[in-house]
Amino acid sequence: MGQKRLVDRALVGASGVAFLVALGMVFFYAPREATMGEVQRIFYFHVASAWVGFFGFFVTFVGGIGYLATNHRRWDILAFSSAEVGLVYISMTLVTGMLWAKPVWGTYWTWEPRLTISAVQWLLYVAYVMLRGSVLSPEREARFAAVYGIAAFVTVPLSWFAIRWWRTIHPVIVSGEGMALTPKMIHTLLVSVAAFTLVYATLLRQRIALEHARDRLAALRLQDEAAAS
């Protein structure tokens, strides 16, 4: 138990430090971008948070496969916890994407491929979470969620291709392409991505611990009821 707590503390500390370092690099290390100006700095955390948003769903997919293969509750907890954390990140990606689009493209929303696929991803997460809240038996809930997580995940690459091609066949004027990245920008981006991944891992770990605690509580309640009746 003591070692577990140590790992927890270390993770929280490391992700906090990494986050602050990344934040510092975004504002003081990365250079000002020529065409877009200061607002381009949204880019670093925006990309990092989109990465976590998509990666979280991959973990949900892996958790789903693990659950169906082994029938172990810990895989299901992993899948569910990752979906909850991932949903928060993809929501953040969408909102900050819109905040970036407004000054650069003059509109909060445009059906640009990356925004569109993020929206689809967001809808997949929401559907997954809604499904989890709507199944009666806990065992079936886990299995349904696993199947849905897998089926949804395999369509994501196809969605990505379809949305890309859809836009390149009829090209749009506005696009984020053509932004020249200097080495300092790349460093900042990489540190941001690493920091966000670390924060994601910390949150995921805490969320998993919460679910385990809930299981313990449910087992205790059942014991209590059995003793009382």
Binding site: V120, L124, V126, A127, M130, T155, S159
Partner: peptide, 10 residues
């Protein structure tokens, strides 16, 4: 529809 339609995107 909530489950199905997002998967139908591509």
């Amino acid at each position: 529809p909530v489950l199905l339609l997002p998967l139908l995107t591509p």
